[in-house]
Design a protein around this nucleic acid. Structure first.
Ligand SMILES: NC(=O)c1ccc[n+]([C@@H]2O[C@H](COP(=O)([O-])OP(=O)(O)OC[C@H]3O[C@@H](n4cnc5c(N)ncnc54)[C@H](O)[C@@H]3O)[C@@H](O)[C@H]2O)c1
Ligand SMILES: NC(=O)c1ccc[n+]([C@@H]2O[C@H](COP(=O)([O-])OP(=O)(O)OC[C@H]3O[C@@H](n4cnc5c(N)ncnc54)[C@H](O)[C@@H]3O)[C@@H](O)[C@H]2O)c1
Lengths: 223, 223
DNA sequence: TGTCGTTTGTGAGAACAATCACAAGCCCGG
DNA sequence: CCGGGCTTGTGATTGTTCTCACAAACGACA
């Protein structure tokens, strides 16, 4: 067994390779080189090879990697050989979009329950599921073996909702609310924060703009 | 002027500090220590200090940072003293949720135009804007000085849409489609990929599960 | 004015990640 | 069975990010 300590940066790229490999498999490709896979994934070939080497020695020198075999190995490493049951809390604009998204089930994430606290929303059918009251969370999480909780409530309620998820036994949380949530260290929280992404883009826009106007000022002084 | 080379990792955290500072300002706090700010942002205090030191020496030893002043400096550094005009391409489930989200404009991102190619969607009003045909992209981007493009189309069309955005003059793209998009190096692309986030969570779930079952097997052997 | 408790700003070192560069190993054709 | 072309796997190196630890600076108060 290889030394099992896959770097976080590698783990974050495995899903990208997985997607590229799925496309290759659909296209009927039998093998793929690190070079080609790197192009499809938008990274450097050496990085691909190093990343894959953490999983084991699954390539063949002079040939490349067997697409199907590598697909299976990455799937296994990412724990995607089983379906993970998922609950969404907060069925507003975003929660609805997520609940009716087909892409998750294709990738092995079954949305198994929806929760809200608004009486107007509870009982409604969204994406084939009935919205439940948050008070039913613990029972449903236990009964349906829900492993992942998605928080799509307003930011003020994110911490409380996260705590209730953890209390119900959930060990993995994906948080869409723009708020920091603190939980026990054995719980994994990942955040998706669109405003942060836009602000990072803004930083770079501002920077190039600042450079451009400095250059302009310089030109005027110099001419 | 300080040496202007702010690390990417720092840039990505500035929005988090900004949010914490906004909360402090609303609560009437005049100053904040790196320790307190670190707790609010969910990071380590030394990191906060180092991050802030890249902006300049804006703290006072023995006291902390002036909330308002720091707010202003981060806002300026992130380029948020101006509104950035943004376009969303692909007005499906996700595009609609984004288009009607109030949070963006609160943070200085004005959604200025919506685009699609589906005749059934074009002309429809979503979040106060009329959906336009993608063919109008170039004209509208130019006229409305749109700086940021959000891609919310199916993955097959993401590359093409990104190219059209770039062709129209957009230098910053936020991509929600699970696809790699390649553009010229002066264009900034950031991706938000929910499936990848779930797969990373899955990796850690799988890992703890594997450890648990290994321990169980061991116990049975040993006992 | 001097002392004390507090908090910043940053050098130094550790940990982590990316990249390079090449020996080792494979396939194939002769 | 050998040699050439190709591609992996991985040490070595470089670059980036995190964390520690502490001197320097500040405010308060006697
Ligand atoms: N809509 C977007 O495009 C978008 C973009 C970026 C971030 N976000 C963030 O995602 C979150 C959801 O956004 P939205 O637009 O769907 O908001 P929304 O107001 O449309 O929906 C929030 C839902 O959460 C429910 N809710 C409130 N408190 C709850 C609680 N304690 N338990 C369970 N449910 C509760 C509300 O009843 C409502 O149905 C927000 O934090 C928002 O900032 C949304
Ligand atoms: N809905 C979600 O919760 C969710 C979650 C994760 C990722 N995504 C990704 O986000 C993207 C959008 O998802 P969605 O659920 O809104 O899909 P959707 O099918 O509901 O909407 C896609 C929209 O894009 C339009 N479109 C197609 N080709 C276009 C083109 N060339 N130019 C402009 N518009 C075009 C379609 O007409 C449609 O209105 C997809 O790539 C999806 O994988 C969505």
């Amino acid at each position: 067994m290889p030394n099992r300590a896959i770097p976080d940066a590698t783990v974050a790229r495995l899903p990208v390779y997985l997607r590229a490999l799925l496309e290759l498999a659909e296209g009927g490709e039998m093998t793929v080189s690190s070079e080609d896979l790197a192009n499809l994934a938008g990274v450097n070939a050496a990085k691909v090879r190093k990343d894959l080497s953490y999983l084991g020695s699954y390539g063949t020198r002079g040939v490349g990697y067997d697409v199907e075999y590598l697909l299976y190995q990455i799937t296994r490493e990412l724990g995607l050989t089983q379906d993970w049951h998922t609950a969404i809390v907060g069925i507003g604009n975003l929660g609805r979009a997520l609940a009716s998204y087909k892409g998750f089930s294709e990738r092995g994430f079954r949305i198994a329950a929806l929760f809200d606290v608004d009486e107007k929303v509870i009982g409604e059918e969204v994406g084939g599921l009935i919205v439940r009251h948050l008070d039913e969370l613990k029972d449903i999480v236990t009964d349906d073996r829900i492993a992942i909780g998605i928080v799509a409530t307003p930011p003020q309620n994110a911490q409380e909702v996260a705590e209730r998820l953890v209390d119900a036994g959930v060990k993995s949380i994906l948080n869409f609310a723009p708020a920091v949530v603190n939980v026990a260290p054995d719980v994994n929280v990942r955040k998706v924060d669109l405003s942060i992404e836009l602000q990072i883009l803004s930083f770079h826009l501002q920077r190039t703009q600042a450079i451009a106007s400095a250059r302009e000022a310089n030109r005027q002084l110099g001419g």
